[in-house]
Nucleic acid binder design. Structure first.
Length: 255
DNA sequence: ATGGTAGCCTTGCTA
């Protein structure tokens, strides 16, 4: 089973690229982030015509997450558990062919010293609590999405450029490490030891042309899922196209 | 150099 995650930065602006990616890559499951549209405005018909079912948690203008799959989707959560007051659409979870899969869009958190950064850390705390509860199940678990956290220095072109950024703060990175310590595995890093493999390049300052990116889109696998991990990679092709998303898909294959 | 680009549908906000 091939599972891909992709922050599309507006599903309507990227619909052509998305349909092309489905045809070229034939993923079994696709985790989408930053839909930037309401649930009822999601281009469901076009996705279904491409052979995929959809579970969607949209939001006007910002955020929004979805899960696409060739097989039946049994939705197990809409919204990240742990705070009924949180109205931001950043988490959707489902059972597909016996695997628990989530598409998540963690808060960016900039600028530092604001409630946005506090929200980022609080959201990651909630994610850790929920991720730990999922480990109690015997099902394989795949938590994929835009974590908005750079794990290590080897995952950024120049750490000095990111000193004051929420994506590179020690507390942000510690939150991601806690997920790993709880038992989850970074699928890409487990299969590819090469440094400087990026999933995001800023639109500004020619970052793509200079290959100055960061790796912030991750597929975290529970131990049972990691036992089935046979391949993982980053597909840079969608980022080469005209009017591309600033992120490109990351994928893994489970036996 | 506090620059630069993209998508929202607000002419600023978020990233």
């Amino acid at each position: 089973m091939k599972i891909a995650t992709w922050n599309v930065n507006s599903v309507k602006a990227r619909l052509g690229h998305l349909v092309q990616f489905l045809a070229d890559s034939s993923p079994d499951v696709v985790l989408l982030q930053e839909l930037k549209c309401r649930t009822e405005d999601f281009p469901r018909l076009e996705i279904e015509a491409a052979g995929y079912r959809c579970a969607v948690l949209g939001q006007k203008s910002y955020n929004g997450v979805a899960i696409l799959a060739r097989e039946a989707i049994d939705c197990t959560a809409e919204g990240l558990p742990g705070d009924p007051e949180d109205v931001q659409s950043r988490y959707i979870e489902a059972r597909i062919a016996g695997i628990r899969v989530a598409s998540l869009y963690a808060p960016n958190g900039n600028p530092l010293g604001t409630e946005k950064y506090a929200y980022k850390l609080a959201w990651m705390d909630r994610l850790e609590r929920h991720a730990r509860s999922l480990l109690a199940s015997e099902e394989p678990v795949v938590l994929g999405g835009d974590y908005n956290i750079i794990p290590e220095a080897e995952d950024v072109y120049d750490p000095a450029d990111w000193t004051g950024d929420a994506l590179w703060q020690p507390a942000s990175r510690a939150a991601l490490r806690r997920l790993l310590w709880s038992g989850y595995t970074d699928a890409f890093r487990a299969m590819d030891p090469r440094p400087h493999q990026y999933s995001f390049w800023d639109y500004q300052a020619g970052r793509w042309q200079r290959n100055e990116g960061i790796r912030i889109d991750h597929l975290l696998l529970s131990p049972v899922a990691t036992d089935r991990l046979v391949a993982a990679g980053i597909d840079r092709t969608p980022r080469t196209r005209e009017k591309a998303s600033d992120h490109t898909p990351v994928w893994c294959e489970l036996s």
